[in-house]
Simulated assay, not measured.
Amino acid sequence: MKLHVLGSAAGGGFPQWNCNCRNCSGLRAGTLRARARTQSSVAIGEGDDWVLVNASPDILAQLRAAPFLQPARALRDTGIRAVMLVDAQIDHTTGLLMLREGRPLPLWTTRQVREDLSSGNPLLSVLEHYCGSRWHCIEPDGRPFEVDGLPGLEWRAVALSSAAPPYSPHRHAPEPGDNIGLFVSSRASGRSLFYAPGLGEIEPQVDALMQRADVILVDGTFWSDDEMIALGVSSKRAREIGHLPQSGPGGMIEALSRYPRARRILIHVNNTNPILDEDSDERLRLDAEGIEVAHDGLSIEF
């Protein structure tokens, strides 16, 4: 099994186009030791066959930076056998429109995500005028399933405590299936990955899978619960919009200490998060805890 991080930032990427916070302005000026990042998306696969997990608005640039996803076996070709969405957020779905050429997309989502992408943000209706999609239902019940073309991988989905998009009818009344985490295991090696870029709380069903995982790739959006409020760019706390901050009691750093044998990596990092500055005290804290920060192009083979 192989994991390739196509994009590691939260919505807007890093630097964000209209932001002049310390991180964004420092990266542009060359005064900050940090890496530019595109919006979060990963590829999980075996051999030449891959599942694209989330299709970010930056997907075309991400595909150009990952030539193995274009094996060129025919006039029009791709190594992507399916697209899987963990939620219906704009930064995880807009890229579907960039993949409109060619055959219908095998698309795996929960019923809730399909509903949101057919009504509040009708991307799937637009796609029907182009390549269309072949929908496969994900049941977030922890039971194993298989994606066609990748027989060596076993997938499980689990419902997360997080938030649906602002345009969703479930925005203020979350339903199981609005957001999911994925547990993927290799039948050959027995090794496994838990992936959840939007994670507001580690509930028992999530903890059970994280305990089993060899690699944990989870929500790194915000350092502190009031990060956006302190900067004056939002009135909402991290937990209000479905993200567990890294610092503070019950934060992600404390939570990840329960899984010492796993390789622990943060993804979906917001442009305001001080951990993007590789010389910051916050980044040094993560280093001391043995927690990594994902970057575009990070590859892991299990």
Results as ranks from 00 to 15, higher is better:
residue 4 H to A: 15
residue 6 L to S: 04
residue 6 L to R: 03
residue 6 L to A: 11
residue 8 S to F: 08
residue 9 A to N: 00
residue 12 G to L: 10
residue 14 F to M: 01
residue 14 F to S: 03
residue 16 Q to P: 10
residue 17 W to N: 11
residue 20 N to C: 08
residue 21 C to M: 08
residue 22 R to A: 11
residue 25 S to H: 12
residue 26 G to I: 00
residue 27 L to G: 03
residue 28 R to W: 02
residue 30 G to M: 11
residue 31 T to P: 10
residue 32 L to P: 01
residue 34 A to V: 01
residue 34 A to P: 13
residue 34 A to T: 14
residue 35 R to I: 10
residue 37 R to G: 00
residue 37 R to F: 08
residue 44 I to Q: 09
residue 45 G to T: 08
residue 51 V to L: 06
residue 51 V to K: 04
residue 52 L to P: 03
residue 52 L to S: 02
residue 53 V to A: 13
residue 55 A to D: 03
residue 57 P to V: 06
residue 60 L to F: 05
residue 60 L to H: 07
residue 63 L to G: 00
residue 63 L to N: 08
residue 68 F to H: 14
residue 69 L to T: 05
residue 69 L to Y: 02
residue 73 R to I: 02
residue 75 L to Y: 06
residue 75 L to C: 03
residue 76 R to N: 02
residue 77 D to S: 14
residue 78 T to Q: 03
residue 78 T to P: 00
residue 80 I to K: 05
residue 82 A to C: 04
residue 84 M to K: 00
residue 84 M to Y: 00
residue 87 D to F: 11
residue 88 A to S: 00
residue 88 A to E: 02
residue 90 I to W: 15
residue 90 I to E: 12
residue 92 H to Q: 14
residue 93 T to Y: 05
residue 93 T to K: 07
residue 96 L to C: 03
residue 98 M to F: 01
residue 102 G to S: 09
residue 103 R to G: 07
residue 104 P to K: 13
residue 104 P to M: 12
residue 105 L to K: 07
residue 110 T to P: 07
residue 112 Q to D: 08
residue 116 D to K: 06
residue 117 L to T: 06
residue 120 G to I: 12
residue 125 S to C: 03
residue 128 E to P: 00
residue 131 C to G: 08
residue 132 G to D: 02
residue 133 S to G: 13
residue 133 S to C: 15
residue 137 C to T: 15
residue 138 I to L: 11
residue 144 P to I: 04
residue 144 P to N: 08
residue 145 F to K: 12
residue 148 D to F: 15
residue 153 L to C: 05
residue 154 E to T: 14
residue 154 E to A: 15
residue 154 E to K: 12
residue 158 V to G: 01
residue 159 A to T: 08
residue 161 S to R: 14
residue 163 A to D: 11
residue 164 A to Q: 06
residue 165 P to Q: 14
residue 166 P to K: 02
residue 172 H to W: 12
residue 175 E to Y: 14
residue 176 P to D: 13
residue 181 G to V: 04
residue 187 R to S: 15
residue 187 R to T: 02
residue 188 A to G: 15
residue 191 R to C: 14
residue 192 S to V: 00
residue 192 S to G: 13
residue 192 S to T: 04
residue 195 Y to D: 01
residue 196 A to L: 01
residue 197 P to K: 09
residue 199 L to K: 10
residue 199 L to G: 09
residue 200 G to C: 05
residue 201 E to R: 08
residue 206 V to G: 05
residue 206 V to K: 06
residue 210 M to D: 06
residue 210 M to W: 03
residue 213 A to Y: 04
residue 215 V to G: 01
residue 218 V to M: 10
residue 219 D to A: 04
residue 219 D to T: 02
residue 222 F to H: 09
residue 225 D to W: 09
residue 226 D to A: 07
residue 227 E to S: 12
residue 228 M to D: 13
residue 229 I to L: 10
residue 230 A to C: 11
residue 232 G to S: 06
residue 234 S to H: 09
residue 235 S to R: 13
residue 240 E to W: 05
residue 246 Q to H: 13
residue 247 S to E: 11
residue 248 G to M: 04
residue 250 G to P: 03
residue 250 G to I: 05
residue 252 M to H: 10
residue 255 A to P: 00
residue 257 S to D: 14
residue 262 A to T: 06
residue 263 R to H: 13
residue 263 R to E: 10
residue 267 I to H: 04
residue 273 N to E: 12
residue 274 P to W: 14
residue 279 D to W: 09
residue 280 S to F: 07
residue 281 D to S: 15
residue 283 R to F: 14
residue 286 L to H: 04
residue 287 D to R: 03
residue 291 I to Q: 02
residue 297 G to H: 06
residue 297 G to D: 15
residue 298 L to W: 11
